[in-house]
């Protein structure tokens, strides 16, 4: 027999018992039933005595009626005392029924809570996650110019850079600028998407960003170079699916209407991280899944 199908009647019976034994309305119903039983018993006795009196041509007096009522009350109380052990067994059985029912409910609740904890833990993990965007190494820096080596990463292949490039900037502070696509929290929490950053230029504090060095963001087809792969380099995904995902990404980046229609993008904006640099320094740029770029966990400063 399916255990689940037993739960309904068990819970209903336990709820009824619980209601009758613990709520004032339940007490009133129980008291009402007892009172009704007594009233029926007393009225039966009165009616019998009344008929007997009538048959014998006598009138039944008020005192006689009161005496019958008292006798029936006494009889009822004596009967109740006699069945007390039975009542106690019934009460204990009722308590057991409620206990078993509540335990089964607790077990169900524990299973639900376990699933909820697992779901929330996954949400926390997804939100706390950050992905490496680029490693920056300072090849030389004299306060006026800085030469950099940049290694860029794809979030799906975190172990090795997918592209490296050298660049030079003017100034003692380096700005690594990227296009950032932050997805809606619902997408990040579920793990369906990860926020993206596409580095596209570097500049220094002594030059206007427009005069910075481009990092060749797109190829001739408009696809970010960071995401362009030879077929042999695409692991775990069909090349057609990979291309479709790239096209979807480019639609989201280039078309604000598509972004709004998709309803999955929280914000698209430019973001740069900045660091004052000396020759030999190195640092890592991350994209946070709660939003934005950061520099963390480097020991170069």
């Amino acid at each position: 027999m399916d255990i689940e199908s037993l739960k309904g009647p068990l819970f209903a019976a336990a709820d009824a018992v619980s209601f009758l034994l613990t709520r004032p309305a339940g007490w009133a119903i129980l008291g009402g039933i007892l009172a009704l039983g007594f009233a029926l018993r007393a009225s039966g006795a009165l009616r019998d005595r009344f008929l007997a009196c009538e048959a014998s041509g006598r009138r039944m007096g008020a005192g006689q009626a009161l005496g019958i009522l008292l006798r029936e009350l006494y009889g009822s109380l004596a009967g109740a005392v006699a069945v007390l052990p039975t009542v106690a067994v019934v009460l204990v059985g009722a308590v057991l029924l409620v206990g078993v029912s509540d335990s089964v409910r607790r077990l169900d609740e524990i299973a639900e809570n376990r699933a909820r904890i697992s779901e929330l833990s996954a949400v926390v993990r997804n939100l706390e996650r950050r992905y490496r965007v680029a490693d920056v190494r300072v090849l030389s820096a004299d306060g006026r110019t800085a030469r950099l080596s940049l290694a860029f990463y794809d979030s799906r292949i975190p172990g090795k850079p997918v592209r490296t490039q050298e660049a030079a900037v003017e100034g003692s502070e380096v700005f690594v600028d990227a296009l950032v696509l932050d997805f809606a929290y619902s997408e990040i929490e579920s793990g369906r998407r990860v926020n993206l950053a596409l580095p596209y230029r570097v500049y220094g504090n002594l030059q206007a960003p427009a005069d910075g060095q481009e990092l060749a963001l797109l190829d001739e087809r408009g696809v970010p170079l960071l995401y362009r792969r030879a077929e042999a380099e695409i692991y775990g995904i069909e090349p057609e699916a990979y291309d479709a995902r790239l096209e979807e990404l480019m639609d989201l980046l280039e078309d604000e209407g598509a972004r709004r229609r998709a309803g999955i993008v929280r914000s698209v904006f430019g973001a740069a991280v900045r660091r004052r640099v000396r020759a030999g320094d190195s640092f890592t740029i991350w994209i946070e899944q709660t939003g934005g770029l950061t520099i963390k966990g480097d020991g170069g400063f």
Binding site: E254, F269, G270, R274
Partner: peptide
């Protein structure tokens, strides 16, 4: 002076895209 662990963060618009 840059306190340990600090970094700069710049946010801006991109004329062509956003």
């Amino acid at each position: 002076r840059e306190p340990s662990g600090s970094f700069g963060s710049v946010v801006h618009d991109i004329a062509r895209i956003a």
